[in-house]
Design a protein around this nucleic acid. Structure first.
Lengths: 214, 214
DNA sequence: AGCGGCCTGAACCACGCAGTTCATGAAAGG
DNA sequence: CCTTTCATGAACTGCGTGGTTCAGGCCGCT
């Protein structure tokens, strides 16, 4: 292979494979599956069309791969196990900030949500991997954290998984629906912070023990 | 017009116009705008293709019309002002049950959300009317109720609108995302009741006054 | 130098699908 | 009874686009 590593975008060298994936994420996210034109995609990737089909069997295959690629980039831990060292309130705040940021200010996340929702009968497998590696993994991580704090006596939670999902929902308040339905305008950092703080406040009122400030 | 009223589905007589709209809602919701094939749509409607174009100029026009059609069918009140007579806890439970029912067991609502999300760049006006007449009207109604209970001293709420949206989000826990992304399986009545009760519990923990049980 | 692998660009094929046309037929209405 | 209106179905047009082919060209390897 000759010029596999030659092209660079923003100074970072990318292999042809990666360049195609990056362009795919961008295009699919912007225009949806049907709205994406493979000729255009090739041009944005700076690559000849046959090259794409040399790396990916299909438009659908590329679509799947692009979802996984995007999820891989987005390994920003929602609830890092390291948060367990913090006091419940601090840890919850960190988690809530991650969540509101994700819901309110992450474009890739939003676009792929839209795509999965829109196309879901045709690409159920794509939707499944998205859910498994995205939202569900996130709430699982949160649930683990909650268990730690519960055992440490800082929270009192009977159903950690359900509680985790409640927290996640609370973090969507005011910022997510608008984006899901409307123009993909970012929520401001102010809004995200506010929603996060309020979510934790409500969550602790229910699940916090006296000393935690519930 | 000859057999405008002759065909019947499930015993209800529908005009050709309505039959097309019903089929359109179903198809668009299931497959999105691009994924919908006009030949198939015609067949599902039990109508010849030219007939569709005799009633609607365009695929896009039909799409818009189908959204408005769906809106007209769905005039359920989430938070009736009459609930204000109830104690806060009872009233909130009623509201929460309405919400979980809507999120978990109302097919029209779900389809509608999918359609708006799928088409939104190209049909922003449709999405806007949906938001105004749907979710936003709902949370406004809830906010009014919250204000009543606040003034009556049963709740302590600084930002009623925000709190209303928090309640609404809490009522999605565990039942809405799965439907939005996955198969449109109904949430069981059990699940809805559970989520509603838990939502109210969490909500009151934050916003209830001592005597309310918060 | 010669070979093999990969990329390129442009042309090309095939197909799905929105929208139309047309001949036919059936009901309503004066 | 004749006219108007409208549904029907089948065939057709035209276009956008997914996917392929092919003749080159660049590069590394031996």
């Amino acid at each position: 292979m000759s010029n596999d590593e030659t092209r660079s975008i923003i100074g970072v060298r990318l292999s042809i494979h990666e360049r195609i994936l990056e362009a795919a994420v961008e295009q699919f996210a912007a225009d949806g599956f049907d709205g994406t034109n493979m000729d255009v995609l090739a041009r944005t990737a700076g690559v000849a069309k046959p090259t794409i089909y040399n790396h990916f069997k299909d438009k659908a295959t590329l679509y799947l791969a692009s979802i996984e690629h995007m999820l891989g980039r987005n390994r920003a831990t929602i609830a890092s196990p390291s948060f367990a060292r913090l006091a419940a309130r601090e840890g919850l705040l960190k988690v809530a900030h991650e969540l509101t940021w994700l819901f309110g200010r992450d474009d890739d996340m939003l676009m792929f949500c839209k795509m999965c929702i829109a196309g879901n009968d045709r690409f159920q497998t794509a939707t499944d991997t998205f859910l498994r590696n995205g939202p569900w993994r996130g709430t699982d991580e949160i649930a683990s954290l909650l268990r730690v704090w519960h055992e440490r006596g800082e929270l009192h939670i009977d159903r950690p998984s359900f509680a985790a999902r409640q927290l996640s929902e609370l973090c969507k308040t005011d910022i997510f629906d608008a984006r899901l339905f409307g123009a993909p305008a970012l929520a401001t950092e102010e809004e995200c912070r506010f929603t996060a703080v309020e979510a934790v406040e409500t969550f602790l009122a229910r699940y916090g023990c006296k000393m935690t400030g519930g």
